[in-house]
Amino acid sequence: MSKSHTSLAITAARTDDGAPVYWTPEGGWSRALADAQVFADAKVAEGALGQARGQERQVCDPYTMKVSVVDGRPQPLTARERIRCEGPTTRLRRPDPPANPTHPVP
C-alpha cells in the first residue's frame, strides 16, 4: 500500500519564459516536481526559501507549496498546482485542415 504525508516544496516562475520550476536539493531549479526538494519541516523550508529568493535573475516570486509525498514522490495538492505542474488540460492549438500542411501543430 502506498504511504502519503503532507510536506512542502518551493516553486517559482522562471524568468526567461515564466515556466513553473521547483527548487532542488542542489540549490538550483528544475522543471519537474519529481526533482524538487521536499521539506518535512516548515522552518527548514523557510530557510531554503530565503536562499531561493536570492536567485532573482533565474526566477520570479518563489513561494512554498504544500505537497503530498506518495511513495517518496511529491504530488501537488491543489488543482492550481497540479495544472502548473502538468500544463493546461485543454488542447492548445487546433490542427489545420489537411489542405494546409505548412504549419505543423506544436
Binding site: 524568468t15 519564459d17 515564466g18 515556466a19 532573482e56 520570479c60
Partner: peptide, 21 residues
Amino acid sequence: AESEFKPLRLQNGLYMQLHAY
C-alpha cells in the same frame, strides 16, 4: 529584479500567468 521589472512589464501589457508570460 522582478520587483522592479514587474511594474514596467505591466505597463506594457505583459503579465505572468501560470505557465508562461
